[in-house]
């Protein structure tokens, strides 16, 4: 059997969206070439959720169900992925480029003696070779790369870029038994950030604020707009470094890389290090009082004006639209 193996990430038994995107992308390539798709799912008490992966194109799901795999460990999870890869000998192993995927993929690759293509935003298949496109130099350039003939081709896919589609199949469950788990670095606890806010890295819509907000209290305006849109709140580094909001909200070079459907930048100038984190967003909106602010160069829509007047008016208008 040969095809594509996809690492599937779960948290408390629910499958992460990025993994479904990776699975769907694998299915699209496999279906066109008569290849198989299998998933590998480590965790504890996860047999129930494994079957659902068939709907996204997995013909087989390798499960590593073990109390020691309840929380993440690179060593434990890598053991499971490598065990599945040994059974399947795939052309490629896909990961979603989440915090977990980006941690795990290189460890798996090194175990298998190969390299990796990280955080790719485009994939095509030439024969058996994946050709990937990935942003480099703060998204000021794009590299077209492949694994130089090394297999399996270990590839992580940027979340929110590839679409997740149900393919309507069913999966055979295969248990990975007898894993030699020797875990040294082990997650003891997963602490959710206060308030259970949506994380910018996973949001479909992001309302982001910068130095133009003038003070921490004005993030309330961002939160109000965000809540209305079901969005996450993002921030520029200037706002984070001023202590107005926690670093987990920072978008950019030294923050998170995001690709939401809609990114609304309020009082953010659009420094190259900020663009590095959000230029792959599908629709970019800028609200800035400076018509020459660089953010307008990447914006699909924008308003030149005072955000303290424009944003409250937007909130009113959105409420009207929603009520209609």
């Amino acid at each position: 059997m040969s095809g594509i193996l996809v690492f599937v990430e779960q948290r408390d038994g629910s499958i992460r969206k990025g993994s479904l995107e990776a699975l769907s992308e694998a299915h699209r390539h496999a279906a066109a070439n008569g290849w198989d798709v299998a998933a590998v799912l480590p965790g504890s008490g996860i047999e129930g959720v494994a079957a659902g992966l068939g709907a996204y194109g997995a013909g087989k799901v390798f499960i590593a169900d073990d109390a020691n795999l309840k929380l993440y460990s690179a060593e434990g999870y890598a053991e499971a992925v490598v065990a599945a890869a040994k059974q399947m000998t795939p052309h490629a192993i896909f990961f979603s480029a989440t915090a977990m995927g980006r941690d795990l993929a290189p460890r798996v690759a090194a175990k298998l003696g190969v390299g990796g293509l990280a955080d790719v935003t485009g994939l095509t298949l030439e024969g058996e070779t994946f050709v990937a496109r990935r942003p480099v130099y703060s998204a000021k350039a794009f590299a077209t790369v492949d694994t130089a003939g090394k297999t399996p081709q270990v590839i992580s896919l940027r979340p929110n870029v590839f679409s997740a589609e149900e393919a309507g199949g069913s999966a055979e469950i295969v248990k990975l038994d007898g894993l030699a788990l020797s875990i040294r670095a082990m997650v003891k606890e997963l602490v959710s950030s206060e308030g259970g806010e949506i994380d910018v890295a996973e949001a479909n819509i992001i309302v982001s604020g910068g130095r133009g907000l003038k003070g921490p209290e004005n993030f309330a305006l961002m939160r109000e707009l965000a809540e209305l849109l079901g969005a996450a709140v993002g921030a520029s580094r200037a706002a984070v470094d001023a202590g107005w909001i926690d670093h987990s909200h920072q978008v950019g070079q030294t923050g998170k890389v995001v690709s939401p459907t809609l990114y609304i930048a309020n009082g953010i100038s659009g420094a190259i290090q900020h663009l590095a984190g959000m230029s792959s967003s599908k629709i970019i909106v800028a609200i800035n009082k400076d018509p020459d602010a660089p953010i307008f160069k990447v914006a699909d829509y924008g308003v030149v004006g005072d955000l303290f007047q424009v944003v409250p008016a937007m909130i009113e208008e959105i409420k009207k639209v929603k009520a209609a």
Binding site: L71, Y72, T98, A99, M100, R184, A185, M186, V187, K188, E189, L190, V191, S192, S193, G196, E197, I198, D199, A201, E202, S248
Partner: peptide, 11 residues
Amino acid sequence: EVEGGHEVVES
């Protein structure tokens, strides 16, 4: 740092 929080890791 992970999405929506952080993991506490002992090593």
